[in-house]
């Protein structure tokens, strides 16, 4: 007797009011949530969207974060006593507002505003990814700024005293050291981002959580689809943490004694 028949048999018993043992009940619900009508493919499709959304938002967040952090650090590190760069001042002020507003409002609210007030586009998933990227950029910029500030001031002095310009000193000396220091917090931010993609379903984005809820709606049984989605998120995060750990170990090379 194959599994499909087993499912039909036990389901029939349940529907007609008969009693199932707990494991028969478990099997029916599991089958219904994942195997019936090849539903596992929907979870995979959702996972795909989740991963693509995470990757794109991450890329956007990192680029935006680096840009904002660089400008804000450069602004704060202008040599006292000399004339301040007015362009830098304006851009710095804009970025400061950006970080304050994004960090000061809930992500879901931002997504709704991007979708219904700003873009008014039916490319909901794309708009959602954009919103996630903008959100992530604010947090990443603060993490990077913290990392840059934490690098010993002597490093910048040593680089500049050798005649390297500000950007070269940043690029070869300060940023690599800061990057190593912030990797754990950055990884944390990425994990949060991965899970925040579930908010895309609010504005019609069809990612993992969307499919889990849709299947739950069809079955009138929420638990198994939710647990399924939870397992997938967990596995993704574990894989990601493992990769991050590998990268950290490689960067720690220079700490060997």
């Amino acid at each position: 007797m194959d599994l499909a028949q087993l499912y039909e048999t036990w389901k029939a018993i349940s529907v007609s009011g008969g009693d199932l043992t707990w494991w028969q009940d478990f099997f029916v619900k599991f089958y219904q949530a994942f195997i019936e009508a090849d539903r596992w493919q929907q979870y995979l499709e959702g996972t795909g969207t989740t991963l693509v959304a995470t990757a794109l938002a991450l890329l956007m967040g990192v680029i935006l974060g680096v840009l904002v952090a660089m400008v804000r650090t450069a602004h704060d590190q202008q040599r006292p006593g000399r004339r301040k760069n007015p362009v830098l001042g304006v851009v710095n002020a804009v970025f400061k507002v950006y970080v304050t507003v994004i960090r000061g409002t809930p992500m879901m609210l931002q997504l709704l505003i991007w979708a219904f007030v700003v873009f008014k586009s039916r490319q909901y998933t794309l708009v959602g990814i954009f919103g996630l990227g903008i959100n992530s950029g604010a947090y990443v910029s603060e993490i990077i700024r913290g990392g840059l500030m934490a690098v010993d001031g002597g490093q910048m002095e040593a680089g500049r005293s050798l005649g390297l310009n500000y950007l070269d000193t940043m690029r070869f000396i300060v940023v690599p050291q800061a990057f190593k220091a912030i990797l754990p917090s950055l990884g944390n931010e990425f994990i949060i981002l991965l899970k925040d993609t579930s908010l895309l379903s609010v504005i019609s984005g069809q990612e993992l959580m969307y499919f889990a809820q849709a299947i739950g709606t069809r079955n009138y049984a929420m638990m198994f689809p939710l647990f399924g989605a939870a397992c997938i998120y967990l596995v993704l995060v574990i894989i990601f943490s493992w990769l991050l750990g590998k990268l950290e170990r490689r960067l720690r090379q220079s700490d060997r004694r």
């Binding site: 979708a115 219904f116 039916r122 909901y124 504005i203 019609s204």
Partner: peptide, 17 residues
């Protein structure tokens, strides 16, 4: 059909989406 949260669905019609 665009499928979203209930309140978002109401808002979509109002804001011309």
């Amino acid at each position: 059909i665009d499928n979203m949260e209930f309140t978002a669905a109401l808002e979509a019609a109002q804001s011309g989406m």
